[in-house]
């Protein structure tokens, strides 16, 4: 697995605001040249309100990288800074070796982007629009072949305004890759898709990355999508990267801390998180000198842990140390539903 190539990453665990320094484990490790995106201590504030508190990222050539987080975590802000659409407050940012704040036309020609909010050029026909945008680039793809790539060949003569949401977004991708970009930004590309459209979209993105060698930065609030598509995931909550690694690494770390539940002798339900559940259970048995009522050991899934992080982030970074009440309160509401998503549990 690729993990051997990377330095040990910080464990995936809910952390508080003061942990940001320790979770920034991103070090350039690409075996072949510099990363396509390199971000160090990127900060963003609107007036007095800070929305990004020192982001570090490295994205390697040919990789699909997911920036995962709830709405309002700062994903779009991050991506817009990388796209050169927003001026960061501080930090060092390189996209394809260039500071996006100073990226000119030559740099623009090497990146492609798909925003969630485009609904322009509605009168144009899809094929006509794609052929037109090909004329801006020095070495464009063949428009018809690109329509094939996104599965819209038979919709080429349809007016853009009459395409479905999924078709429209696929056309946006075609427009984004018509200039043969090295880097593709997808900002929540599957929002509002039905499962089939989402599936098709995932296949298409994978084909672009695997067969065409395009590096992809994708933002999503959907963990399943990130796990499905990404080579690596960074979890962004409240403007901080809380976890960073391959889906498998993240899942392994998520499962490292088990939750033990039981009912104490006085009848109160108890829970505890531990890295050594066996030891805890043994201790409990010895203390009780007999069987323990309602004993249960649970390995959290990545989903449990992600939602836990999101909730602790929502709670205004309440505590760096997750107290029992706090943590369980958040875990409870979702845990029952989410134990289904166990595919990555150890």
């Amino acid at each position: 697995m690729t993990s051997t190539a990377h330095p040990p990453l910080e464990p995936l665990r809910p952390t508080g605001p003061d942990d940001s320094a320790t979770t920034t484990a991103a070090t350039p490790t690409a075996p072949d040249g510099p990363p396509v995106i390199q971000v160090r201590d990127m900060r963003m504030a609107y007036g007095d309100v800070a929305v990004l508190h020192g982001i570090d990222l490295d994205i390697h050539r040919g990789e699909i990288f997911a920036l995962l987080g709830p709405n309002g975590a700062g994903k779009t802000t991050t991506v817009e800074i990388l796209e050169g659409f927003r001026q960061r407050s501080a930090g060092d940012v390189r996209v394809l070796g260039t500071d996006p704040a100073r990226g000119g036309d030559a740099w623009r020609a090497r990146i492609g982007l798909v925003l969630q909010s485009w609904r322009d050029h509605r009168r144009w026909r899809g094929g006509e629009l794609l052929a037109h945008f090909a004329t801006y680039y020095p070495d464009p793809r063949d428009p018809d072949a690109t329509l094939d790539l996104v599965g819209l060949r038979d919709r080429a003569d349809r007016q853009v305004g009459q395409l479905s949401g999924g078709q429209r977004r696929r056309l946006d991708v075609a427009l984004a890759v018509i200039g043969r970009p090295e880097m593709l930004f997808l900002d929540e590309p599957t929002t509002g898709f039905d499962p089939e459209a989402r599936h098709d979209f995932h296949l298409m993105v994978e084909r672009l990355a695997r067969e065409e060698g395009v590096s992809v930065l994708l933002t999503t609030h959907d963990l399943v999508e990130a796990e499905r598509l990404a080579d690596r995931i960074a979890v962004l909550v409240s403007g901080r990267i809380r976890a960073y690694g391959t889906p498998v690494e993240l899942a392994r770390r998520a499962a490292a801390q088990a939750e033990v539940r039981w009912t104490a002798a006085d009848g109160t339900p108890r829970r505890e998180r531990t890295e050594d559940p066996s030891r805890l259970v043994w201790d409990l048995h010895r203390a009780a000198d007999g069987p323990i009522a309602d004993l249960e050991v649970r390995r959290p899934t990545l989903e449990d842990t992600y939602l836990h992080m999101v909730h602790s982030g929502d709670a205004a970074d309440a505590a760096s140390d997750i107290s029992n009440e706090d943590g369980n309160g958040a875990g409870d509401g979702n845990g029952s539903v989410l134990t289904r998503g166990k595919k990555h549990a150890a």
Binding site: V49, G72, G74, T76, F85, L115, S117, S238
Partner: peptide, 21 residues
């Protein structure tokens, strides 16, 4: 100023209130 559309702007505001909460 054309960095995000209304939608992004809404997200930003959501981000602001989230961070300020």
């Amino acid at each position: 100023r054309e960095s995000g559309s209304r939608l992004t702007e809404r997200h930003r505001k959501a981000g602001l209130s989230g961070a300020a909460a």
